[in-house]
Design a protein around this nucleic acid. Structure first.
Lengths: 362, 362
DNA sequence: GATTCACTCTACATCGTTGTAACAGCACTT
DNA sequence: AAGTGCTGTTACAACGATGTAGAGTGAATC
C-alpha cells in the first residue's frame, strides 16, 4: 500500500496530472494549488515511484560502469571519479563487477539490462580484438582502455605505449641497465599489457639497452600478490636486476614488498616505477614513481562522451580520446623530497615532451 | 522502436502472456510453442525490459549500498564483498557514494529512490545518535557500524571497543609505554572513533599505563593524508612516542609514511598497528599489524539480513550481529616472517580470547 | 457417459507515472 | 465582436511487462 500520485491527488482535490506537474516543476500552476498539493505530499509521505517514471519516460538517469574489480585500487579510484562526474550531470552510477570473467563481460555487453540504465562505460579485461562483434550494441557505449581497437563505440584510452616508453627511459636515465618488467602477458597483441610492453621495448632500444627475456615477468592478474610473486620468482632465479617497471601500481607495491623481504634497497640497489599513480604509491615506503594516466580526465571524458551519446549524437562518428599522461617521480627512482612528486615528463599524444613543472603528490 | 514482447508474440503467433511465460521459465508450455517463441526472440533480438517488469512485480532484485567513499580502500573492499555476496542471491548492487556529506546521507535515508531497489545497506559516517528518527524508514534497511545504536533496523557492527583494547594491549605487551592514537574525534560519543578510543583507554588502564592527552591525535577524515599529517604534527611537536595505534589502516599507512620521512624505524623505534586489515597493509614496508574486523563476514551477514527483510520477516525484532574480530600481527609490531600474518588474539563478543592459530596473510 | 484433472494458452486489468490533446477562462488585439 | 494567446487544469491513452481468471483441449477416473 505505498502512497501514489492518485492518493495525493484525491487529498489535494486535483487531478493526478496536476500532482505530476507539481512534482516535475511545471511552471503554470496556481500558487494555491501548488501549496495544496505539496501539503498533501508532505502529509502522506509520498515518494515518486522512479520505476514507473523510468518506464514512461524511457530514461533512467542512471548509467552503468563495468569494471573488473573494486578491490583493485585503480578501479576503485576510477569508480569514485566516474561517480563524481556523473553526479554533475544528475546521473547515478550502477557498478557492475565483472570479476575478470569473460562470461560476465559478455553479459554486460549483451544488454540483459539494456533498459535499466541509459548507457554503459565499459572497461574490458578479458574481451579483446577478436570479440569486436560484441561491441556493436544498440545502446550508448563508451569503452575504456585499449583492448579493443576498432569497436563501433567511443573510446577513452591512454597513451600506453608512449608512457611506458617514457617510464623505461626514466629508469635508463638513472643509469640502470637491467630493467625488469612485471606484468607481461605473453602472446597478447592488444590490451594494456601488450602496449605497455611495446613501450618498454621501444624504451630499451632508444636507450641502447639489450632485450633480455629473463627480465620479462609474466603476471596474469595485476594484483599486489601477483606482483610480489613475479618479482620474487625473478629474484630467486638469480636474474640480475637494477630497475623494475611494474605495469601497474598494485604490482609495483607487491614487487616492493618482495624486494624488501630480500633486503634489497629501493632505489639504492633497484629503482622502481609503476603505472596508474594511485593514492597508495604516494604514501608507500619508499614512495613509488609512477605513470599518471590522467584518471580524473579519463573519468570525466568518458562520462561526457556517454552523456552526449545518450542525448543522441548518433550522426557523429566514433571518437577516441587520449588524455595526456605524466611521469611522476618519487623516492623509488631518486632522491625527491618526501611528500613531493616531481613531474618528470608529460606524455602527449604526439610523443614525449620534457617539462620541469613541480606538482604536489597530494 | 525497441522490440517488445508484443513484437515477439506477433511473430511467434502466440499471445503476449505466452511469451512472458517462456521468458520466465513457466513449465507448462508445449515444446513446439517454446521453440517458436525462442526463435522469434532470437530473430528480433528481443531483450526483456527490466523497468517494466520491476514496475509490475514491485521487485527490482537490486539493493543499494551506501558508503562514504570508494577511494577509501576499506569501503572499496567492502563493496567488493557486498557485491559478491549479493550476486549469490541473484541481486545487483547500486552503490551510492555519500562523500562524507551529511546531506547526502539524509537523502539516502529519505527514500528518494525508495522504489529503485529492494533495500538498503547503509554505512553512515555523518549521521549519528541524534538523527535516529531518520532511520525509521518504510523499506528494508541494514545499518553498518556503530554510529547509531537503537535505530529501528538490523545492525551489523564490529567489536570496536574490545578489538581496540586488544590492539592497545598488544602494543603494551611489546613493552611500549608511549602509545599514540591517530584518528580521535574529540567530543564524539558514538561512532567508530569514540568506541575505538574507549577501547584504547581501557587498554591503557589494563596495562597500567598513564593517559596522556598529548598522545591523542585528532584526525577528521580517516585518509592516508590525514594520518600522515597527524603523525607528523605529533612528532614535530616533540611528543615522545614508542608505539602508534591508528584507528584505521589508511591512517596507519600515512603514519608509517610520516615516520619513515623522519628516519624513525618501525618497529624498532615505534611499533604500529592499524584497523581494518585491508590488503594494503599486507604488502607495505614493513607490513602492518591490524585488527581484522571480519569484513567478509560483515558483508555476507548484511546481505543475508537484508534479503530476509526483503522476503518479509517483518515480525522479527531488530537484530544486532557482531562478527568476531582478530588481531593480525605483522612486521610493524614484531618479527613475524614476511608474508605471514599471525593471529594474536581473537576478539569475541564476550571479550578477548587468546589463541595461537596461524593464518596466511592473504 | 459424465466428471474430474492436468495441460496449454489467452484476454484483460493493472503496476504508477507522463505525454498529448483539449477545454474553459481571461486578457489582450485589431 | 471575433480572433489570438496565455494560463491552469483535466481526461485519456500510453510505457512494457505480469497476475488472475478462465476457456479449450484431451486423457483419466468413476
Amino acid at each position: 500500500m505505498p502512497v501514489t500520485m492518485h492518493d495525493v491527488a484525491v487529498r489535494a482535490g486535483v487531478s493526478i496530472k496536476t500532482v505530476s506537474n507539481v512534482v516535475n516543476g511545471y511552471p503554470h500552476i496556481r500558487p494555491e494549488t501548488r501549496e495544496r498539493v505539496e501539503a498533501a505530499i508532505e502529509h502522506l509521505g509520498y515518494r515518486l515511484n522512479t520505476t514507473a517514471r523510468n518506464l514512461r519516460t524511457r530514461r533512467t538517469d542512471m548509467i552503468t560502469l563495468a569494471v573488473p574489480e573494486l578491490s583493485l585500487p585503480y578501479f576503485a579510484e576510477l569508480a569514485d571519479s566516474v561517480i563524481r562526474s556523473a553526479e554533475q550531470h544528475g546521473l547515478t552510477v550502477l557498478i557492475e563487477q565483472t570479476s575478470a570473467s569473460r562470461q560476465r563481460e559478455v553479459e554486460v555487453l549483451s544488454g540483459r539490462r539494456r533498459h535499466l540504465t541509459d548507457g554503459l562505460i565499459f572497461s574490458p579485461l578479458e574481451l579483446g580484438q577478436e570479440d569486436i562483434g560484441l561491441f556493436s550494441v544498440d545502446f550508448p557505449l563508451v569503452v575504456l582502455g585499449e583492448r579493443v581497437f576498432d569497436a563501433p563505440a567511443d573510446h577513452v584510452t591512454m597513451n600506453n605505449v608512449e608512457a611506458a616508453k617514457a617510464a623505461t627511459l626514466h629508469l635508463a636515465s638513472l643509469g640502470r641497465r637491467r630493467i625488469a618488467l612485471i606484468g607481461a602477458h605473453e602472446g597478447e597483441e592488444v590490451g594494456s599489457a601488450a602496449l605497455r610492453t611495446a613501450g618498454y621495448l621501444q624504451g630499451l632500444e632508444e636507450a641502447g639497452l639489450p632485450y633480455d627475456p629473463a627480465l620479462m615477468g609474466e603476471a596474469g592478474l595485476w594484483h599486489r600478490a601477483t606482483g610480489a610473486e613475479t618479482m620474487a620468482r625473478m629474484l630467486d632465479a638469480g636474474v640480475e636486476v637494477d630497475a623494475v617497471f611494474a605495469l601497474n601500481d598494485a604490482m609495483a607495491l607487491g614487487a616492493l614488498h618482495a624486494l624488501h623481504a630480500r633486503r634489497i634497497d629501493v632505489p639504492g640497489d633497484v629503482a622502481l616505477i609503476g603505472f596508474d599513480d594511485i593514492d597508495d604509491v604516494k604514501y608507500s615506503v619508499p614512495t613509488i614513481s609512477s605513470v599518471d594516466p590522467g584518471r580524473e580526465q579519463i573519468a570525466r571524458t568518458a562520462v561526457d562522451l556517454l552523456v552526449e551519446r545518450i542525448a543522441g549524437s548518433d550522426g557523429r562518428g566514433y571518437r577516441r580520446v587520449v588524455p595526456d599522461s605524466r611521469i611522476v617521480g618519487r623516492e623509488s627512482t631518486g632522491d625527491v623530497p618526501i611528500g613531493d612528486g616531481e613531474v618528470i615528463a608529460a606524455v602527449q599524444p604526439g610523443g614525449i615532451e620534457e617539462v620541469a613543472v613541480r606538482a604536489q603528490a597530494s
